[in-house]
């Protein structure tokens, strides 16, 4: 019961999504519309589950006075502030000039942009330690990264300004991105697609069951 019903649901839903592509007529088109709507609703609840779970863990940390519980209080307060403001604003919560928009613009955006921006330092420091031209393959990797980085900034063209336009660093970087990089990306994408198709088939047919977890 705990495993059979989920397997049945996975199989039926997966088969319907495949069939509606080949037979876009009743009843598959109708079922596809229902399932797509349900998917959006369930996905929203799944994100809610994550947020509520974060609250549960944070409250437990506060009540049990675990180390750094003060930061858990900040998490709870920030969550409640954003949620209360968002619900109070109504459907137009994202409109310019609302309190939700203010929080997004002056608190959320600086935090998220800076969080991703400082990754530049960590990537640079990691690459400094890891990138060594030990063999031909590693040298290719190093060279491609160097040319693309230098070709994307004005310094690259200033340094190679004496060369014909098509041989300057910006042109070389574009060529690498447009051709050899595209070739490698395509090989990876085709490989991923084949892997996804086989994994999806295994899931739909009930061969792959790891998403159901352990137990009965």
């Amino acid at each position: 019961m705990r495993r059979e019903i989920p397997l049945l649901i996975t199989g039926i839903v997966g088969i319907v999504f495949v069939l509606q592509y080949f037979i876009p007529h009743f009843p598959f088109n109708r079922m596809n519309a229902w399932f797509s709507d349900w998917f959006s609703i369930v996905a929203a609840f799944a994100i809610w589950l994550g947020a509520l779970n974060l609250m549960k863990i944070s409250f437990q940390k506060v009540f049990r006075r675990k180390s750094d519980w003060g930061y858990a209080v900040v998490i709870i307060m920030s969550f409640l502030l954003m949620a209360v403001v968002g619900f109070a604003e109504g459907k137009g919560f994202r409109d310019q000039g609302t309190a939700f928009d203010w929080l997004f613009q002056f608190v959320y955006t600086p935090l998220s942009a800076t969080m991703f921006a400082i990754l530049a330092f960590f990537v640079a420091s990691a690459s400094y330690r890891a990138f060594r031209a030990r063999n031909f393959e590693a040298t290719l990797l190093l060279l491609a990264a160097f040319l693309v980085m230098l070709g994307r900034v004005p310094t690259g063209d200033v340094l190679t300004g004496f060369m014909p336009e098509g041989m300057r660093l910006s042109a070389v970087a574009s060529w690498i991105m447009n051709f050899p990089q595209t070739a490698g990306q395509r090989a990876i994408m085709i490989g991923i697609a084949l892997g996804l198709v086989s994994t999806s088939l295994r899931i739909i047919l009930g061969i792959e069951r790891s998403h159901l977890g352990g137990g009965d």
Partner: peptide
Amino acid sequence: AIFVGLSAGYWFVVLFWDN
């Protein structure tokens, strides 16, 4: 901590109104 709380709150609200 502010970022974590606000992100969770942001998606909580957005998915409520949108979905």
